[in-house]
Design a protein around this nucleic acid. Structure first.
Length: 511
RNA sequence: GCCGCGUUGGUCAAGAGGUUAAGACGCCUCCCUUUCACGGAGGAAUCACGGGUUCGAGUCCCGUACGUGGUACCA
């Protein structure tokens, strides 16, 4: 019953044309999870057959993103492997023979129509009911191709190097169906699919030919791709049938799309709604257009991967937080949704917040240290910083937040929110803090406990509720209404600095 | 237009004929904390619509609507 068990091999096949967006990373992730779960291989193949859209640096960028996410391929142009080359542009010569083989078998034909002739055809046959006429059975006999031209003419044109493409000859009145791992049975009427170009005039294959040939040659067992490909699946099924046999065809899985707030997610949405759509920052070298990435926005890769996994899949329980290992263990295609999901940035941030809380101080240390260094805070003592991280991480949603949550430990606040204390400021309070400074000198161990004791004792003596004084004290040290326990802060910034900040604020208040 | 795919609160979703229709995000209230968070307790809010089938439908069938993708010598 079992169709011979072959090794699981999956592939992610991006075009090096620009940034890697959410949907792309999720496709990678599902590929990766499936491969790892089944002890298979994850391959990255670069589909650079459209030379007009090639963008310098885009390929390297894709690998950088995958590395950041922790989704390292087993085979790729960068990682090597025995099924290379892994760039379609470097496999150009292999595609022609398959196209020729199809012609030989009567499943494809040469077409000599020029772009303008095609344009003319579309205009000529355009009607209200059919705004975009296809190159199909109903019109191919009216075009300039090896089906309508005499064999001699074709031979002559070929030898004269008249530009041509090779098109698949879609059969009539057939139902093309296949079993998708996510959508189950999907079927198409062959009469509505057109004679797609297989080999372009420049000798490069189109996606349709290349994907089939390469999936076969690279022994791909399961093919994941976005749902936008579902409509062209019948072409691929036919190609498999004609070229290699349906028995060898990989199992298809057409993944649901990730939608933006208003329809399909685009990089425009990022700028418009204020959230990243790419994994990492991307600057288009052609026009210097900048698109923000999750990495630089302050997301932890663990959180990024987690939130993407959950967008369209769940394990049936209430669990939402998953490590990569857990995802590998629990992932199953059966539980991937059929319908597209709208991306919710609020929830994305929640994931990051949770992951920051979940991460150990040691894990966060280099990340936060890097952040602070970039903000010109140097000479950071690791164990000191680790302590700070532990103290503030539950208040940080994005990595960036560690800056505002920890700067005041390194330097006195740039801005002190005086307006928060001024209205209720009294002479008594002023006196309190002046006396408190003196008391501070007497504290020898400088533990937060001792500081708190002195503070409470003095306030009791002066008959002022400690709560009335804590907020001003906080503002003096931190600059605003945030941060961990105020005595803890005093303890960490030291006696001299504590006195200094109290004094500085006192002077401003008394002005 | 045609073809494909889809449709459970605002969002992500559990659910596979009989449930008070989980849970999470966000929002609101309260507790904790005289900071901000964390944590805890509550609250508002849902099966797109219309027909069937059935003793019984969010769950099955058919229509409609809506959304989304494709309809390129782009992937």
């Amino acid at each position: 019953m079992q169709k011979q068990v072959s090794k699981v091999r999956v592939r992610f096949a991006p075009s090096p044309t620009g940034g890697l967006h959410l949907g792309g990373v999720r496709t990678v992730l599902y590929n990766y999870l499936f491969a790892k779960k089944h002890h298979g291989d994850f391959i990255v193949r670069i589909e650079d057959t459209d030379q007009t859209r090639f963008v310098e640096g885009a390929e390297q960028y894709i690998f950088d993103c995958l590395r950041w996410c922790g989704l390292e391929p087993n085979e790729s142009p960068l990682h090597g492997g025995s099924f290379g080359p892994y760039r379609q542009s470097e496999r150009k010569s292999t595609y022609l023979q398959y196209a020729l083989q199809l012609i030989e078998a009567g499943h494809a034909y040469y077409a000599f129509d020029t772009p303008t002739e095609l344009e003319e055809m579309r205009n000529r046959f355009k009607t209200d009911e059919n705004p975009s006429p296809q190159y199909d059975a109903s019109i191919r006999m009216k075009m300039k191709n090896s089906l309508t031209l005499s064999p001699d003419d074709v031979k002559k044109m070929l030898s004269e190097k008249v530009p041509y493409v090779i098109r698949i000859k879609i059969p009539q009145n057939e139902t093309i169906s296949f079993n998708d791992m996510i959508h189950q049975e999907v079927s198409f009427d062959s009469n509505v699919v057109d004679d797609k170009v297989l080999l372009k005039a420049d000798g490069m294959p189109t996606y349709h030919l290349a994907v089939v040939v390469d999936d076969y040659l690279m022994k791909i067992s399961h093919a994941f791709r976005g749902e936008e490909w579902l409509s062209s699946a019948p072409v691929h099924i036919l190609l498999w049938k004609y070229l290699f046999g349906l028995d060898h065809m990989p199992q298809w899985a057409h993944l649901p799309l990730i939608l933006g707030p208003a329809g399909k997610l685009s990089k425009r949405d990022g700028a418009k709604f204020g959230f990243p759509v790419y994994a990492m920052n991307w600057i288009d070298p052609r026009n210097n257009e900048f698109t923000e990435g999750f990495k630089e926005k302050g997301f932890l890769p663990e959180a990024f991967v987690n939130l993407l996994a959950i967008l369209g899949w769940n394990n049936g329980t209430e669990q939402e937080l998953f490590s990569l290992e857990e995802l590998i263990d629990q992932f199953s295609l059966e539980r991937v949704h059929k319908s597209g999901a709208k991306f919710d940035y609020e929830k994305a941030q929640w994931f990051n917040h949770e992951w920051i809380k979940k991460s150990s101080d040691d894990h966060l240390l280099p990340i936060v240290k890097n952040l602070l260094t970039n903000k010109n805070i140097s000479d950071i003592n690791d164990s000191f910083l680790k302590k700070l991280i532990g103290l503030v991480k539950e208040r940080c949603t994005l990595i960036e937040d560690f800056y505002s949550q920890t700067v005041y430990f390194f330097k006195k606040p740039d801005y002190v929110e005086l307006e928060a204390i001024q209205p209720k400021w009294t002479m008594d309070k002023s006196t309190f803090f002046n006396r408190f400074i003196e008391k501070l000198d007497g504290i020898e161990d400088w533990s937060f406990q001792s500081i708190e004791n002195e503070f409470k004792q003095l306030s009791a003596e002066m008959l002022i509720k400690p709560g009335e004084l804590q907020l001003p004290f906080r503002i003096m040290l931190v600059g605003g209404k945030f941060g961990p326990a105020v005595f803890e802060i005093a303890n960490l910034i030291g006696k001299a600095e504590t006195k200094h900040r109290i004094n500085a604020t006192l002077m401003k208040l008394n002005n």
